[in-house]
Design a protein around this nucleic acid. Structure first.
Length: 906
RNA sequence: GGGCUCGUGGCGGAACAGGUAUACGCAAGGGACUUAAAAUCCCUGGCCGCAAGGCAUGUGGGUUCGAUUCCCACCGGGCCCACCA
């Protein structure tokens, strides 16, 4: 009888031993280890009250397996862990349960830590960080101040410090919008000089969640609802701290070429940034009370400058500043109607406003017209909510003949539809249902003509497309005057003509908005700024950091949208560091994306209190070699932290040699779903508690199952039976060593050769699979190897160590127990070196040659591995089955694939 | 509407520089051991057929000696974005 495996006993024994030995502590540069570094990173969790979800450990185990292998290979491995602990859920919990967020966080962290430690991760617990620790957020605040003290230098495309860093910034009362990027302002000519600080305060329309009572970043308002609670988001005007991420839009796209991210992650980032090439075009505003129409211009953004001659009206977003101005000046005759429409728009949540298929609405501005700079045509001006204030210039030129939305609107209001391509008399046309856009028309007969004016600009008069209609033999006229390259050509020509005329010119816009950095909540890093009535925004002197969160009793958000901190007068009231007069502290706090934007740097040197990390430590450890995280963080955390790193690098706070990107590689894991394939959720009652699994099966079974459950990058449903199978596998490993090893004494020669082959194959495959994150097939190969040993009656002596070693990353406790149980091995298996394989033993002496006749497998014969092509073909043709098919005829063709098959064509 | 992905046994999934489809595991059936059960071990297993053989990787075509893999069209899931001018 075998002794049952008592994992309870040895798992905790080894966990303790490893901790005491400091087995997983990474050495700082210059310390004992000399090996190359490897920095593996998983997203540090938010310590919620619910404890660790089974989904969390999937990536922790995966990167643990990988880093354990790297460590065994002799690398100096950094695999750190910490807590992203600021955030709304804890604050809400604190309000509900009448506890302090600090206390709730501490309790949650110790629960998470206990859970993680029970799973045997090789985390370096010496480097644990916590974003809510004043010793940590001191540096988050310090970094914010660096951004406040720097500005964007357009000539180099980098953030640079301003000349007088400690100088206050006067309150900025201009109407600048949050959504500024190059050429992205609703005003063509901004008046007052505006401080171009990387961190700036600005009154802006924000997404306001009425339930959380908090302003949301654009990225947090998904489909018009709050990402956290699902409540419809409202618009609100509010002064907010912003970070000028839009200035980095281009580099955030470009630098993706320097890193090794999954393609879909790169693509999602690029789409989010939403680069779009087009042109700004200035239309004159006529009837607004200025003398000449050039005095006030409506600047529009378009990606289709080639359709300029098809403009039949101009549309402004209802929020466009001109509208209010013209209402005030009396230029608009139907002001009441316009005001009513504006009011209606602000009431609507974004979801309603942007729902597709919704009828287009709008109001004509009576008394105002626009002048087309290309041909001097006067066209009507509308406001309509299908034009978004935050994108482009908040104004568009409408070309109903070539744009679906403009067409819908024109239909509704019976506006002119003017094609850029003029069809000859008598040509019938019908709309084609397939293809892009509205403007695909079929013209019969083939000839058509473009307007004279456009033709002159483009330098030609006639253009034949040559594309044929799907439904009839007629020629297809593309939506935009021309197709393919010709459209691009037309766009370029018109854009540069516009530029020559000084009526705008080519430009690039982005969907990306500046990062709203203010939160009107308690549980976050206080923004270290003092607001002085005479000086303006004054940075808190760096030697006074951190600005501590005050100890308070109530965390309720205020009805007027101010932070709960605003109520704590003793904290708010302070003196101005600049003039010494009475002043108040900024009461906004930072979003929880702040602390997580740089935690990977703190891990490099977590106990440093003179700097966020020493340059030596950063130089040695950064960039992160492999970063694993959820797809849901691709447009939030990943983008923010890349941006943050770039700003710091530009300012010289990160050594030049680290490079502009913080992560060399980024991978993503699939979710663990409930048994039915649904998401696990408390309400459905289908949540698996990892504590129970670890308690019942042990950490090693849990870990191996996590790795075996399916392809790492795909979602996988939890299967209670599946875990039983993995338990049996590890029991089998145990038994191999417990009872049957002696049975291997009477070895058989042929069996040993076979085991050699499978052993060496396994070492090779598992090694490659770990590096390729193909953990499920690595486990299956371990099972194959284990089954082979079981069949053979034990593990041959010369394979014992390699076998335990290759098992070690997956089942570290069992491997350590087996490693030590012999008594003649010293040290830990986890530092024992990675097993090598003998390539010469991977190929067996014979193989099964497959014989195909006309593509179908008809026979298989055993042949020597080094068989010659001629012999293989001869043997194949000599096969009885092949002879039956040949029936005396000569084969037309015989193909030999080395080591695989012979294919005979009759 | 746009983009990205994926369709292989009863289930999770293997195998794609084109070369033995269904590895490994689960579940299932049969057997051994046991007074019995658990545990363990052995055997069977894509489908149809007694067999020879035929048909099988969502469907239909194509390229090839040979296609799960490449190309075209379609069908069906999933995810993301979406009035971005």
């Amino acid at each position: 009888m075998s002794t049952p495996r008592d994992f309870q006993e040895y798992e905790s024994k080894w966990q303790k031993a490893w901790e005491e030995q400091g087995l997983y502590h990474a050495s700082q540069p210059g310390e004992r280890k000399t090996g190359e570094k490897f920095y593996g990173l998983i997203e540090f969790p938010f310590p919620s009250g619910a404890g660790l979800h089974v989904g969390h450990p999937r990536s922790y185990v995966a990167i643990d397996v990988l880093t354990r292998k790297k460590r065994m290979e002799g690398k100096n491995v950094l695999y750190p862990i910490g807590w992203d602990a600021f955030g709304l859920p804890t604050e809400n919990y604190a309000i509900k349960m009448h506890v302090k967020p600090q206390d709730a966080t501490a309790a949650n962290i110790s629960n998470f830590r206990r859970q993680m430690q029970s799973m045997g991760f090789g985390f370096d617990w010496n480097r644990e960080v916590n974003t809510t620790d004043p010793a940590y957020y001191k540096w988050t605040q310090w970094m914010f101040l660096q951004f406040f003290k720097s500005e964007f230098d357009a000539s180099t495309g980098r953030a640079v410090y301003v000349k007088d860093r400690e100088a206050p910034v006067k309150e900025n009362r201009s109407e600048e919008r949050g959504a500024r990027s190059e050429g992205n302002s609703p005003r063509p000519t901004p008046h007052a000089p505006r401080p171009d600080r990387m961190a700036y305060k600005s009154t802006t329309t924000i997404n306001w969640c009425p339930s959380c009572k908090i302003g949301l970043a654009n990225e947090e308002s998904i489909g018009g609802v709050c990402e956290r609670c699902g409540t419809s988001v409202e618009k609100r005007e509010k002064a907010q701290w912003m970070i000028r991420i839009t200035t980095y839009a281009e580099r955030l796209i470009e630098d993706l070429s320097k890193v090794n991210y999954l393609e879909r992650i790169k693509k999602q980032q690029i789409d989010w940034i939403g680069r779009s090439e087009g042109a700004m075009i200035d239309f004159g505003a006529w009837g607004v009370g200025r003398g000449a129409w050039e005095d006030q211009i409506i600047r529009v953004f378009t990606t289709r400058p080639d359709t300029l001659f098809g403009v039949t009206y101009v549309v402004l977003a209802p929020e466009h500043p001109f509208v209010e101005e013209w209402v005030k000046s009396g230029a608009i005759k139907n002001a009441d109607e316009v005001k009513a429409y504006q009011k209606e728009t602000t009431k609507k949540a974004d979801v309603d406003r942007t729902a597709e298929g919704k009828d287009k609405t709008g109001v004509k501005l009576d008394g105002v017209t626009a002048i087309n700079p290309a041909n001097g045509e006067e066209v009507p001006v509308f406001i309509a909510d299908y034009v978004l204030a935050g994108y482009g210039t908040g104004a568009v030129m409408a070309v109903p003949a070539h744009d679906r939305r403009d067409f819908d609107f024109a239909q509704f209001y019976s506006l002119a539809i003017k094609e850029v391509i003029k069809l000859p008399e008598g040509v019938t046309k019908k709309q084609v249902t397939r293809g892009t856009g509205l403007g695909n028309w079929v013209g019969h007969p083939i000839e058509f003509q473009i307007t004279d004016a456009l033709g002159k600009i483009l330098g030609f008069e006639y253009q034949n497309l040559g594309a044929t209609c799907h439904d009839c033999p007629g020629t297809l006229i593309n939506s935009g005057t021309f197709n393919g390259l010709q459209t691009e050509d037309a766009k370029k020509k018109i854009s540069s003509w516009i530029e020559e005329q000084k009526k705008g010119g080519p430009t690039v816009t982005y969907k990306l908005r500046d990062w709203i950095f203010s939160r009107q909540r308690y549980w976050g890093e206080p923004i270290p700024i003092v607001i002085c009535p005479s000086c303006g925004y004054v940075p808190v002197p760096e030697d006074q950091l951190p600005v501590l969160l005050p100890d308070v009793d109530s965390y309720e958000p205020t009805e007027n949208g101010e932070s709960p901190l605003a109520k704590i007068r003793s904290w708010v009231e302070t003196t101005c560091p600049h003039c010494g007069g009475k002043a108040e502290r900024e009461t906004d706090t930072m979003p929880n994306w702040a602390g997580s934007s740089w935690y990977f740097m703190r891990y490099c040197d977590p106990h440093n209190d003179a700097a966020f990390a020493s340059p030596e430590a950063l130089k040695y450890w950064m960039p992160v070699d492999l970063y694993d995280g959820g797809m849901e963080h691709t447009t939030l955390h990943l983008l923010y932290s890349r941006f943050w790193h770039k700003m710091m690098w530009d300012l010289g706070l990160i050594p030049e040699s680290v490079g502009s990107e913080p992560y060399k590689a980024r991978v993503s894991h699939g979710l663990i779903l409930a048994a039915g394939g649904e998401k696990m959720s408390k309400s459905k009652g289908n949540v698996i508690n990892p504590d129970e699994v670890v308690g019942e099966y042990g950490a090693d079974v849990f870990r191996c199952y996590m790795m075996f459950i399916g392809p790492y990058d795909q979602h996988a449903p939890w299967d209670t039976n599946g875990i039983e199978g993995v338990k049996r596998f590890l029991d089998k490993v145990w038994r191999l060593f417990e009872e049957e090893r002696g049975a291997r004494s009477e070895e058989r020669e042929d069996q040993t050769v076979e085991l050699e082959t499978i052993y060496n194959q396994s070492m090779k495959k598992i090694t490659a699979d770990i590096d390729g994150l193909a953990f499920n097939t690595a486990i299956s190969q371990l099972m194959i190897l284990t089954n082979a040993f079981t069949d053979a009656g034990g593990v041959p002596e010369n394979m014992v160590e390699g076998y335990i070693k290759i098992l070690a990353p997956f089942a570290p406790h069992l491997a350590e127990e087996l490693w030590s149980s012999d008594g003649h091995r010293s040290g830990s298996v986890h530092m024992s070196g990675w097993p090598q394989y003998d390539a010469s033993k991977i190929v067996s002496a014979v193989f099964e040659l497959v014989i195909q006749v006309n593509g179908k497998v008809r026979d298989r014969i055993q042949v020597a591995s080094d068989i010659s092509e001629a012999d293989a073909k001869a043997k194949a043709l000599a096969s009885e089955k092949v002879q039956n098919y040949l029936a005396g005829k000569e084969p037309k063709q015989v193909i030999y694939v080395k080591g695989k098959l012979v294919s005979i064509v009759i």
